[in-house]
Design a protein around this nucleic acid. Structure first.
Lengths: 156, 156
DNA sequence: GTAGGAGCTTGAGTGCACTCCAGCGCAAGG
DNA sequence: CCTTGCGCTGGAGTGCACTCAAGCTCCTAC
């Protein structure tokens, strides 16, 4: 992090660490228009002002929630139009917000499905039954809870 | 759907429709060991018994929540060991459950980030300001809320 | 002054998870 | 008998989103 005349800026490495993107990915995002061109220092290196770092965070949130690269590109392109595109940018974000809500619902469903299955196994083990409802022989039951048996299947 | 001697079975198409996977994907899953081999009818076609359809649903939930193909394969391989692997299967599912919980937290964060940005735009528009806090000229403001301006940039 | 380290650009390569296709079989309908 | 439709297998192809590599420039520190 460096503070010079125009304000506080950070280098690409720091942005990478804070955003969860790799350095390569950050450069690739910029090339592909998923991020505006970062201003360069006198040595030609990217210096990210705070504004841009915040923007990176937003873009990461959008990508992580499944917005396709093309849509992010569109969103970024709109920032070139300044205030005139605020409405359209907001619309894009609102669409994505709907997506996220859908994902949340889906995730909750999937969590429930997995949870039920876990519960199912727990009951079977507790009751000493196999999947067909037949009793499990004691030697098998003894082995039932051992983790990671190293998938070594009767090595000679 | 067909009901014959051993119970109710469905064809691959129906399974695809109910699971959200494509027919091709279902076949690919089976080939790759993400699903147990489906029993075939007398004509050599896959007939999915109810048990298997339920299993497909579980696998879809696992994949959709980001479990890598390799882990699903492992999970499916464990089913070959019958009741003896119940504990290990449960452990895999529990690990995935933790993942899902993390994703839910992440998703909530991302939703908040997007939501805040939307709110930010809403405020700017309402106040008639641009991103720098300067007032927006009326001609720009008039255009601010038009959706999808067809990205036609001063076509001659 | 030179060795090391970070970053730059451009372009090629990679991994995952399917998707598509050719060439075939089978069964029903006309 | 022939077509239509669905499904089968094995293998090749695809799309997305990076990731990696080569060859370069800077700066810093010894």
């Amino acid at each position: 992090m460096t503070t010079t005349g125009t304000g506080t800026t950070v280098g690409i490495r720091e942005v990478a660490e804070h955003s969860g993107l790799s350095v390569d990915a950050l450069r690739w995002y910029e090339r592909e228009g998923l991020l505006p061109r970062a201003p360069r220092g006198p040595d030609g290196r990217r210096r990210y002002p705070e504004r841009l770092v915040g923007f990176v965070r937003l873009v990461v949130a959008l990508r992580r929630t499944g917005m396709p690269v093309a849509d992010v590109r569109e969103f970024v392109a709109l920032t070139d139009d300044g205030a005139a595109s605020h409405g359209r940018r907001m619309a894009l974000l609102e669409r994505q917000r709907e997506n996220i809500l859908r994902q949340q619902a889906q995730l909750a469903d999937d969590l429930a499905a997995v949870g039920h299955k876990i519960e199912h196994y727990r009951e079977l083990i507790a009751a000493g039954l196999d999947c067909e409802g037949l009793p499990v022989p004691p030697d098998v039951a003894a082995v039932q809870c051992l983790p990671t048996l190293q998938t070594e299947r009767t090595a000679s």
